[in-house]
Design a protein around this nucleic acid. Sequence first.
DNA 1: CTTTTGACCTGACAGC
DNA 2: TGCTGTCAGGTCAAAA
Length: 271
Amino acid sequence: MPELPEVETTLRGLAPHLVGQRVAGVVIRHPQLRWPVPKDLTRLLHGQAIRALRRRAKYLLVEFDHGTLILHLGMSGSLRILPVDNPPDKHDHFDLILDSGKLMRLRDPRRFGAVLWQGGDAAQHPLLAALGPEPLEKEFSAAYLYQATRGRSAAIKLVIMDSHVVVGVGNIYANEALFRAGIRPQLAASKLSRPRCTKLVKAIRQTLRDAIKAGGSTLRDFVNSSGEPGYFQQQYLVYGRAGEPCRQCGTAISLIRQGQRASYYCPRCQR
DNA sequence: CTTTTGACCTGACAGC
DNA sequence: TGCTGTCAGGTCAAAA
């Protein structure tokens, strides 16, 4: 589920409940996530104060004085704030219990998510060290994208989904951004002209910004002891709309498969 | 180096 | 009501 806007929304929902709190306990119910959850987290975190909550790519970083708890939601993960006495469900694998009498709970049915620890500087962690620029930061510029796509024969959609090129562009928003830029997903990355790089960078930024904004409006549902946190359903331009009319020209939206992922595009508006 | 493929898991849904 | 097959929003590691 979670792409960058969902992770960002999660961060904004969690931050007021976490920052400044001390850890009163850690519960690991199912340590087999994408990687094993470190067994000594309780010892590492007990009594420590949460200094800040940040995001890098789709990783949530819970910062302490001596290191960082690194969280990833994978395909099906969600985080919620609940009262400590809330009974866990089948897929509730990890709790961070806070001094406030609440806890942060990770639910992740598919267990593609992660709970990791990095002492010292989180950027040193092997998973974070090789990541490309953030799409909403100025380092992700048209000039940068032009450079990054030279000599790459792979399809542009696969390249913008490559976290070494730019982070946080998942399947949905890759499709949406390419539509906005008028670029076919299967176009060889090396064939992107400079002006089209400018267009694509703007489209990626705008697509993600709009989605974060849409997420903000559902933030209310985020802390909710009964239901799921409020992931938001947007009105997509092409994603999931195979055979339906293009919102711009009415042509039927095409569906192809690239790298085992679904790509949707308008054969008329995207060239 | 780049590109492609398989792997990790469970749940929802379509079709028989 | 099962069963089987397919698909799902992530992303790493190995193979080619």
